[in-house]
Design a protein around this nucleic acid. Structure first.
Lengths: 177, 177
DNA sequence: ACCGGCATGTAACGGGTTACATGATTTT
DNA sequence: AAAATCATGTAACCCGTTACATGCCGGT
């Protein structure tokens, strides 16, 4: 599944600019299962436009630069449906932090602790930005996706907090803070 | 973190061939936080050898092709420690299945159900191949890593089984099997 | 005055996957 | 007899990231 397809998917949520699509991958609904950078999004939107799968209109804004707002077209939806018809590839995860935990013996204890705390915090952040809006107004399949994301992050946070000692040792850490 | 570093990490578990390292990424301990293919592992081992970070000896086997067994050298360990000293990059996840769930409205219900069942099964499989060996003999930081992986998969499985209806509808599914 | 956020784009570079090439042996 | 597992390796290709290039506006 390439960035073109992902952009089509993003545009099913409503018209958006390249910049806004990027944010969907950073903070937004896509953030916990895919990511993409400007360098892939802008060319993708260009190609989708050439192929007639999206349309574009320029929108001037007061106080901010112009936006190029993209909309998915009917043939875009057809193309999206076709892409979604293919068997999904296996999940691909790469977590350098987990590699470090796995190889903890090769790290300095203080560094390990910093990496651990940073990792835990990043999960807290992701969980927070996934809780704000009220779920019950979302269509059920979106509730499912968000719920799964939350379950994911919550389980990881709980485990990490309860098992900190396995990785970092007893550390007379007690409950200082 | 490139495949070279990952190979060094894999070799800290003991000597191994390229083929065996590949399996570590497929089924083994690395499988839930990284993956790599032959096309990246073999060249990586070659380069590591040239750089003196691993050593190699050929091992003939009865009934099977020869193996090239690699060992990490002392300078290899130094290099690994240095690589692990860098700040870890953010986790990078790409899950086509979750994209499909997110865009469920654009999929045929029967296909969606098949994808869902396949995805759930793959998680069951991953969890199973992560439970067999007895944990208590592992060093604590490895218990941590495995435990986190398990917590991860278990939470996802529980959520998916409890919330199947959100994605697939009521389906008069009751408890037929 | 400077930094951060908004906004778009390009080009080079790197890295890994996919596919190809080969071959023996065991299981079905 | 075919398929799967064991075993190694190369080369082309794709795709995406990183870095660069540009510019305006608002807040500190």
């Amino acid at each position: 599944m390439d960035v073109k397809t992902l952009c089509l998917g993003a545009l099913t949520l409503g018209d958006a600019s390249g910049y806004e699509i990027k944010k969907m991958f950073e903070d937004g609904p896509f953030s916990h299962f895919h990511q993409a950078s400007f360098g892939s999004i802008y060319p993708a939107l260009g190609k989708l436009g050439e192929a007639g799968l999206v349309s574009m209109r320029e929108q001037s804004q007061d106080g901010r630069p112009d936006k190029k707002m993209y909309s998915i077209t009917e043939s875009g939806e057809v193309a999206l449906r076709r892409k979604l018809g293919k068997t999904p590839a296996d999940d691909r995860i790469r977590s350098e932090a987990l590699v470090m935990f796995f190889l903890a013996e090769y790290m300095q204890p203080e560094r390990l602790e910093k990496v651990f705390d940073g990792y835990l915090k990043s999960y807290h952040d992701k969980l927070n930005c996934m809780c704000e809006p009220d779920d019950s107004t979302l269509p059920p399949h979106r509730q499912f996706t968000r719920g799964l994301g939350r379950a994911f992050y919550q389980a990881a946070i709980d485990f990490m907090e309860e098992n900190r000692h396995l990785l970092l040792g007893e550390e007379h850490s007690g409950d200082a803070k």
